[in-house]
Design a protein around this nucleic acid. Structure first.
Lengths: 148, 148
DNA sequence: CCGATATGTTTCCGAACGCAAGTATATCGG
DNA sequence: CCGATATACTTGCGTTCGGAAACATATCGG
């Protein structure tokens, strides 16, 4: 038998793989968005003025800066997000959530919450789910990008 | 505030992203292997006769069959794995762990275990880690591919 | 004010992936 | 035995990603 840390790590990887498989399909077919796109919009939703620089988004999404550039392009064409300049610093190109984006992310988040509830239904008690959320949260405590 | 299920789901995604960032670098520099390659070898290590068909590997690794074909090619050139045919079914092309592969995966697993221990050190009790492993394990219970 | 350095963004390039198509083999119904 | 269907694997194609390079702008030391 292996150490508890090792088991937890392996189970973490496996659980995430399964979760992404399961979520990607329905989320895409219902709202036309990928999971990571919904997460991007959720970060904007939570940010002051509903906007973040691309660097800030990259850190919170754990992706590279170039990925943020590519991810925002189709969202901008869809009208979910816009681009805003900073009057103090011309290097910054904020990604800002539009009203259409707010409606879309609201719907998508509701779908995500329902899928999350389905995922845990019938095999976990409420207390266990809360414990799981807490223990996992400690892994990323002190890091930016918390949405919960 | 959001529901516990939703928080757990978001924290799960974030924790995995952080974990992969942290593990990929050291694992690659120490053993020259990617995390997913180590997982592939670990599956072989645990399998009867130290071998699995590519389809079986694909299911356990949560990747497509073509990915397994591409992943095994460099490992075969390195001498970590070999190819074996099934006398009963000529369609099958088993991936089999060589002796060199057994030594390599043993070392890599030791590194992984140490990194996993470091990851949890100082912020989790042994009991909490065991609880975490158990709760996460339930997410994938009944599925193939358990390594813990 | 100006060079040196740092930072934000985009573009280019190579690596990795999933899916669909192609090939080979097995199995099943007649 | 043989066509039809299913399965295992490989290959080609389009997509996505991270890192390096390019570029614009900001900041800092003199």
């Amino acid at each position: 038998m292996t150490s508890p840390s090792f088991s937890a790590t392996l189970n973490l990887l496996r659980a995430t793989a399964r979760l992404e498989e399961r979520f990607a399909g329905e989320l895409g077919s219902v709202h036309g968005l990928a999971l990571k796109e919904v997460l991007l919009l959720m970060h904007l939703e939570r940010a002051p003025l509903n906007r973040l620089s691309r660097i800030e988004l990259a850190k919170r999404l754990h992706v590279s800066a170039s990925s943020v550039t590519r991810m925002t392009s189709p969202l901008e064409k869809l009208g979910c997000v816009g681009r805003e300049a900073d009057p103090r610093d011309a290097r910054l190109a904020y990604v800002v959530l539009t009203e259409a984006g707010q409606r879309l992310v609201g719907d998508a988040r509701a779908t995500l919450e329902r899928m999350a509830a389905d995922l845990f239904r019938d095999r976990w008690t409420e207390a266990e789910i809360a414990t799981l959320a807490d223990l996992l949260g400690r892994l990323t405590a002190g890091q930016p990008g918390d949405l919960s």
